[in-house]
Simulated assay, not measured.
Amino acid sequence: MWCLFEVFYTGRHTGSLPIRGEASTKAMLHEDRFLLLLQHRRLSRDQHFAKPAFETETTEFRSCEVAGAAAAAGLSLADVAAEAKCASEVMGTMGVALSVCTLPGQVTSDRLGPEKMEVGVGIRGEPGAAVVDLQQVNAIITRVLNQILSTETGYVPITRGDRVVLMVNGLGATPVMEIMIAAGKAVPKLQLEHGLAVDRVYTGSFMTSLDMAGFSITIMKSDKSILQRLDAVTKAPNWACCC
């Protein structure tokens, strides 16, 4: 699907999304906002993981972090959009939920039964690609990483020997301890099983789904330019340092 995502540079940030607020007016072309058209893919339930099901919002978040840093550096609107597009093309995200989020004013869905979890879940409560039996965290991490980095689908241009950035994002009701456990399992698997060098690890609840229990994993191919953007100083209060 194509998702139109607005990035506001007004000195504010809304909700828990840590968009950079101090971005340069040079990148706005006399506008108080600009639009980024980012391409994201989603998997329907009946495709049986022909391609990964990606939680698009976390991918948007990483692209916006790069875009915000580029704008703050004084790049033109065209260059900012180009950097955001490049960033979105080298990352993949997949979410796993142990519960369905409660949407205000609606009855909570009962599609997720006892001892079940949902893989490829949407952050707004959309059904995921599959409902499977509850698994231990080690098995869950293995499944998610294998799906994102599958050489058969070639969904993201990441291969052995590459350098990557990892984000483990809590979906709302996941304790910090459990997020850290997931990150602790993911890093050595990326290094030893997939042959990747991990340059940065970000953990926390960056993009949540109300009271959903679960997490998403984002893997992004890194290079000097990407790391420069991610490491740029920002006043956004909810943007945590890497661990």
Rank of each mutant, 00 (worst) to 15 (best):
S205V: 12
G125V: 00
I140F: 04
V107G: 07
E55W: 00
K116R: 15
L77C: 07
H194D: 08
T59M: 10
L149M: 12
S44G: 14
K189I: 10
S24G: 11
T56L: 07
T153N: 13
T102I: 02
A27H: 01
P157L: 12
T203V: 15
P237L: 12
W2I: 07
P18I: 02
L4A: 13
V233P: 13
F61D: 00
F206W: 12
G125K: 00
E65Y: 04
F5D: 14
Y9V: 15
N146D: 14
E60G: 07
F49G: 01
A82E: 11
C241I: 09
R62Q: 07
T59R: 08
V144S: 04
P157T: 11
T208C: 01
I219R: 03
C3H: 02
V131C: 05
A173E: 13
T14W: 08
V198N: 14
A182R: 04
L4S: 13
G105N: 05
D110R: 11
C242L: 04
F215S: 01
G195E: 06
I226D: 03
I140R: 03
N138W: 01
P237I: 12
G21H: 10
E6C: 14
G125R: 00
D79I: 01
V90H: 14
H194W: 08
V132R: 05
Y202K: 05
P175R: 07
Y9P: 08
C64F: 13
V233E: 08
D162Y: 10
E60L: 12
N146Q: 12
C3M: 06
G122W: 00
L103G: 03
F54M: 12
L4H: 10
P157C: 14
R124I: 00
A213P: 02
A27M: 05
R62K: 10
C3N: 05
H30Y: 12
R20G: 07
E57V: 10
L4N: 13
A82P: 05
E83F: 06
A53G: 09
L145M: 06
I219C: 12
A130Q: 10
T58Y: 00
A67D: 01
I148K: 01
R12M: 15
A236C: 09
C243H: 08
V137D: 13
D231N: 15
G122A: 07
N238D: 13
G184S: 10
I217Y: 00
T153D: 11
A53V: 04
Y155Q: 08
S24E: 04
